[in-house]
Design a protein around this nucleic acid. Structure first.
Lengths: 146, 146
DNA sequence: CCTAATGTCTCTAGCAACTATAGCTTCAAG
DNA sequence: CTTGAAGCTATAGTTGCTAGAGACATTAGG
């Protein structure tokens, strides 16, 4: 059995984050030692690794909650899991497209800056006037973290 | 002079967001009408457009605060503005790289899912075991919004 | 066996950048 | 003159954590 610190080290997750996951019900309430400290077995370790990995892939905690409850029912169809992953892929692709446009615009800005005075600065000028932009990078939909 | 609603419409910014920007000092306190409603002139409109555009390009409010105070001093060197833009470009490039790796991994996951039962689902399986991954997408640095 | 240094406990508050709600006042149209 | 939209303030909620305070538990060394 691992203490919370060892578990965190093993999974690459900070201790308060583990307690937070428990608090929001993503991890079950841990067993406690005689002195009221949390103890974790292999199942908890796997579950935390799952969460960590899904977070690394950009899934929201809500999506992970769904994925976890799906993985608890191995005999069901995996269509739902597939749909969640596809949605995440679509999300990533859309952010990728957007970021690519941003990158182009920022590069243009930076390259054009001649390094003189603010009054002649392309960076400031372009920021003040979207019509100077080549691409349409106007914030298209709501974005998540990362 | 525009009311806050008209200003928001013109700039593509929601009304509470404008009030929020004023609250955190990104916009100056607006003039008020006899009935205590905010009124905005062209200068405020330009400033808001600047903020909006910079937000669209992914700059943080903190960076925008700096850029705005730079743009208020036209005779100074634009090196600082250039540096902020370059930092933002670097940030975008790093997120782009990360998202590209995520996309590849998600695609692999989704493609391999045969659409059977959860027990055989590649999506669930891969999430549970990072060593099944082709790329190393482990969260490398702290990420900002978008 | 005692002490000091960690580690863990709970609880609360904070971060970015808004968004939403409640309960009120003001304004513009008919 | 009335009604409905738009404005006002103030507070709380969102996501996914992170940081702090103050108290208890555990462990390594002397």
């Amino acid at each position: 059995m691992l203490t919370i610190g060892k578990l965190g080290e093993a999974a690459g997750v900070k201790v308060p984050t583990i307690r937070y996951y428990e608090q929001i019900g993503l991890l079950p309430e841990a067993e406690r030692s005689a002195g009221n400290q949390r103890l974790y077995g292999r199942k908890a370790q796997e579950r935390l690794a799952f969460i960590r990995h899904a977070r690394d892939l950009g899934f929201t905690l809500e999506a992970i909650r769904d994925l976890l409850s799906l993985s608890d029912r191995p005999d069901q169809s995996c269509a739902a899991a597939d749909a969640i992953a596809k949605a995440q892929l679509a999300e990533v692709e859309s952010r990728l497209a957007r970021l690519t446009a941003l990158k182009a615009e920022l590069e243009r800005m930076v390259v054009q800056c001649a390094g003189g005075k603010i009054a002649d600065c392309r960076v400031i000028e372009v920021l003040g006037d979207h019509s100077l932009c080549a691409t349409d990078h106007r914030h298209p939909e709501t974005e998540a973290t990362q």
